Amino acid sequence: MTGDREPRKARSSSRQKSAGARVSAADAMRSAIEQLSELLGRAPESVSSLRPTDQGWEADVEVVELERIPETTSVMASYQVVLDPEGKLLAYERGRRYTRAQVDRKDGR
C-alpha cells in the first residue's frame, strides 16, 4: 500500500514549481482564463495580450458580457488581469466594452 502512494507523490512533486519561480507564458494565460472565469461566472473567449512585468504578468482577456442574436451584436468586454510570478490572480479590472463586430481603428473610434 505504501508503494502505491510513492509514485503519486513523485509525479505530483515533479509538476510543482519552486517557490517564487515565474510560470511560463502559456501557464500564465491558462491561469488568467481559469481564475477570471471563476470570479466572473462566465468563460473568457480569448487572451488578447500577455506581457511579463517585474511583479509577474499582465494580460488582457476578452469576455462575452451579453449574448445577442446575431452573434456579431454580442457585447464584449476587455479585462486587464494582473498575476503574480506564479500565476495567481492579484487584481482585475474591466476596461472597454464593445460589440463583437466592432473593429479598432487607428483614430481610436
Rank of each mutant, 00 (worst) to 15 (best):
V23L: 02
I33V: 11
R15E: 15
E58F: 01
E6S: 11
L36E: 03
S46T: 14
E34Y: 07
E65S: 09
P85M: 05
T73V: 07
V61H: 03
A77T: 05
A28S: 03
E71A: 09
Q35V: 12
V75I: 14
S12C: 08
E6I: 08
K9Y: 13
V82K: 02
G3A: 10
R5A: 15
L50M: 07
R94P: 01
R105I: 08
P52G: 10
P44D: 02
E6F: 12
D60W: 01
T72V: 11
E45F: 01
R96M: 13
R109W: 10
I33G: 00
A26Y: 03
I69N: 09
I33H: 05
M1S: 14
E65M: 12
D27E: 15
R105F: 05
W57F: 07
Q102M: 09
E58C: 03
P70M: 10
V81E: 01
R68H: 05
M76P: 09
E86H: 04
L66Q: 13
D107Q: 12
A43N: 08
T53Y: 00
E6R: 14
R109Q: 13
L36R: 00
M76Q: 11
D107T: 11
Q16C: 12
P7L: 07
E45A: 11
R42W: 02
A101R: 12
A101W: 00
T99W: 05
V23G: 06
E45D: 13
S24L: 07
Y98A: 04
D84C: 06
R15T: 15
V63H: 01
R5P: 13
P70L: 04
E58S: 09
A21Y: 02
R11A: 15
G41F: 06
S48T: 15
E93N: 09
D4H: 12
R97G: 02
G87R: 00
R30F: 06
Y79G: 02
T73M: 14
E93T: 07
D104I: 07
M29E: 14
R22F: 10
A10F: 11
Q55S: 14
G95K: 05
Q80K: 09
S49F: 04
R68N: 12
E65G: 06
Y79Q: 05
V82C: 00
S24I: 08
E62T: 14
A77C: 08
S14L: 15
E71S: 14
